[in-house]
Design a binder for these strands. Structure first.
Length: 669
DNA sequence: CCGCTGATAAACATGT
DNA sequence: AACATGTTTATCAGCG
């Protein structure tokens, strides 16, 4: 499902084939990449992240294999055949929305950063991974042994008796399975080992590349080798296949793992429809997650405030009994439930990973990016809040203890945690990097307000600001008392305000010029010294689409499509709670005060932070000779008058408010 | 599928 | 010639 789109997105990335991409020259004399360019990486997907993911996936696969084995769902033959497809587990959840393309990677990471990250981490990764796999193999062996032994002892036992719930750490207590299944299991064990070896090989290969290219900034080709899109794609495909396979056989289990999670003590009501292969006994065996669902008869994770918490359900249930009934009727084992479960799993995984990653990076960034060290760092708290949610399903087992979290040195860009929306969109979930479309733009996030809030953040972190060039240019211009800037001044504003624009200058400068020329809202005015650019506010507002129900596609899907409102809400709430004080607007852009509020007209906010305020209303003299008038159908007359003269600004503003709120919100192309 | 918008790249013109 | 500044065209991606 999502797999397809994931690989698709990779494939579709322009330039991804030649491996060179468009990473614009870094050799621009301006600005340089001084800020935060050392040490930290902006990678959305660092090697460590991959490792982290793969660890989880490996465990999951192991679990599934074991389970399949135990349930007899998989036959020796098909396990053999599918071996190649199980090779490298990579979370599907990871790959879909946040999977980055090579180009993205290139944009996000400077060669130096990548090199540093690779060098620092891959060695560590290998070591960790080897340890991890070693442990895993030991576990599996143990398990196998105990299984064999148990098998001898309990060969006669009816299926229903075996397999109490277990988790990865408890695999060794796996109850006996029938003899022939042991063979299959052994094969799967073998398979696991092969998988691990291949995985290690892959990593080693990547590591080699990374280390070899240790001369000077890593070339793009090296980069593409290190994180080759095709490799990734391959991984994804493999993963997709393996996931598909396991899902086919495991779908029942997936569903039951949650739906059956209610206390078996309470009343395994209608129980589950007898499973195809007669594995009813396995319903409770589903590992870790179920073991975490030891709620009391009167509480159920899927039941709260008198309603069903099943994603997208919200059916009212007066009491637990009714709810249980509802659960078993409305959310029985069917395609829909299964699909929802899968999605939920992905969502959880996604959030889990994202949060862990982001918070960690945030910590690192705070210390490395010259942020005020004294500022409190409330990230851990909300993080726990959220992770507690996901951990209910993702048992700690999922994280092998032998494996420390990804090194913080691999810091990556994070998004300002202010408004949940912005967080989710800008760099997190829905792909980042060369994303050509600033999803966040649709978020009703006025530039000024966003900037005011996260000024420091954008200034220091090389995170792509979630605004269009046009809105940024406008902001730059409106930020000045005169409401006019030369091209160069606009450049300077960009580099001053956004760390992101301190690199790839050729690209974005071109984009800026392009935008200035293209959009009617930018008016070039020649004055004595040359030419300055101004904003035709009316024109600008005009081109703003009237809609704006903005919410990132992903979130939207999560909420509307599958009804993940609750989870998402938690997530967002947590994120919102974590809004950094230090990201709040510095005096420079004083509009923040109530920035969160939905900030509408950023013009007001940014417009006159006191200083600019009417201070330099003039500009008329200079504007006397507007030269370029971009061809446009009508109303030429109006514009000149509106040319962002500070004074006019004032007059225009009220209009903005009168505009539909949405429109006034601006900044959502 | 189509049209729109935005990002990116690039060719080209012009001025300094 | 090199560079900055503008303009224009083309292509691609995401979205409604």
């Amino acid at each position: 499902m999502m797999v397809e789109s994931a690989s698709e997105s990779i494939r579709s990335t322009p330039n991804s084939q030649n491996g060179v991409g468009s990473l614009p020259n870094q050799s621009d004399g301006s600005g340089g990449r001084d800020v935060g360019a050392s040490g930290e990486s902006n990678g959305e997907l660092t090697p460590a992240d991959l490792l982290h993911f793969q660890q989880q996936q490996a465990l999951q696969v192991a679990r599934q294999l074991l389970l399949q084995q135990a349930t007899g769902l998989s036959t020796p033959s098909n396990t053999e055949n599918k071996q190649p497809s199980v090779q490298v587990p990579v979370s599907v959840a990871m790959m879909s929305p946040q999977m980055i393309t090579q180009q993205q990677m290139q944009q996000i990471l400077s060669p130096g950063q990548i090199q540093a990250v690779l060098q620092q981490q891959q060695a560590l990764m290998l070591q960790q991974l080897q340890e991890y796999y070693k442990k895993q193999q030991e576990q599996l062996h143990l398990q196998l042994l105990s299984q064999q032994q148990a098998g001898k002892q309990h060969q006669q036992q009816p299926k229903e008796e075996h397999l109490p719930r277990y988790n990865v750490d408890d695999l060794c207590i796996l109850q006996p399975v029938l003899g022939n299944k042991q063979i299959a299991f052994q094969q799967q064990l073998l398979q696991m080992q092969q998988l691990q070896q291949q995985h290690l090989l892959n990593l080693q290969r990547q590591s080699m590349v990374g280390l070899q290219s240790g001369q000077g900034p890593m070339s793009l080709q090296n980069l593409s080798q290190a994180v080759s899109p095709s490799d990734l794609q391959q991984l994804l495909k493999e993963m997709a296949n393996s996931q598909e396979e396991s899902c086919k056989q495991d779908s029942v289990d997936l569903t039951t793992s949650i739906t059956t999670s209610y206390p078996t003590k309470v009343s395994p009501p209608t129980a589950h429809p007898s499973l195809p292969n007669g594995q009813g006994a396995l319903q409770n065996t589903r590992r870790d997650s179920s073991s975490h669902y030891e709620f009391t008869p009167n509480s159920h994770p899927l039941y709260g405030h008198g309603e069903c918490r099943w994603p997208g359900c919200e059916a009212l249930c007066e009491d637990m009994g009714q709810f249980i009934k509802h659960l078993n009727t409305e959310h029985a084992l069917d395609d829909r439930s299964t699909a929802q479960c899968r999605v939920q799993m992905q969502v959880v995984q996604q959030l889990e990973i994202q949060l862990a990653k982001e918070s960690e990076r945030l910590q690192a960034m705070m210390t490395h990016l010259h942020m005020r060290p004294s500022e409190p760092k409330p990230f851990s708290q909300p993080l726990n809040l959220v992770s507690s949610i996901s951990h209910t399903k993702m048992s700690p087992d999922t994280y092998p203890d032998g494996l420390p979290q990804p090194p913080t040195s691999a810091t990556a860009p994070i998004t300002p945690l202010r408004q949940g929306t912005s967080v989710i969109s800008s760099s997190s979930l829905p792909s980042l990097g060369p994303v050509r479309r600033r999803i966040v733009d649709k978020f009703c996030t006025p530039v000024s307000s966003e900037l005011a809030q996260n000024h420091e953040f954008y200034k220091n972190a090389e995170v792509r600001p979630p605004f269009t060039y046009a809105s940024l240019i406008r902001q730059a211009i409106l930020d000045t008392p005169d409401r006019q800037l030369t091209l160069n001044e606009i450049y300077n504003w960009f580099t001053r305000m956004f760390a992101y624009f301190r690199r790839n200058t050729a690209t974005w400068k071109n984009a800026v010029r392009h935008n200035l020329s293209l959009h009617k809202c930018f008016v070039r005015v020649e004055n004595v010294k040359g030419a300055v650019w101004t904003v035709d506010e009316l024109e600008y507002q005009k081109r703003r689409p009237p809609k704006m129900t903005g919410s990132p596609t992903l979130v939207k899907n999560m909420i509307s499509g599958l009804g993940y409102g609750a989870l998402n809400a938690s997530y967002q709430a947590a994120l919102a709670e974590s809004s950094f004080p230090l990201l709040n607007s510095p005096p420079l852009l004083n509009s923040s005060g109530s920035g969160l509020h939905g900030g509408h007209d950023d013009v007001t906010s940014t417009g006159e932070p006191g200083n600019s305020n009417g201070s330099s209303p003039r500009l008329s003299p200079q504007y006397s000779q507007p030269v370029h008038v971009k061809e446009e159908p009508a109303e030429e007359d109006v514009r000149p008058a509106l040319l962002s003269a500070p004074t006019n600004q004032k007059t225009v503003l009220p209009d903005e408010r009168d505009l539909e709120p949405e429109t006034a919100m601006e900044d959502l192309p």
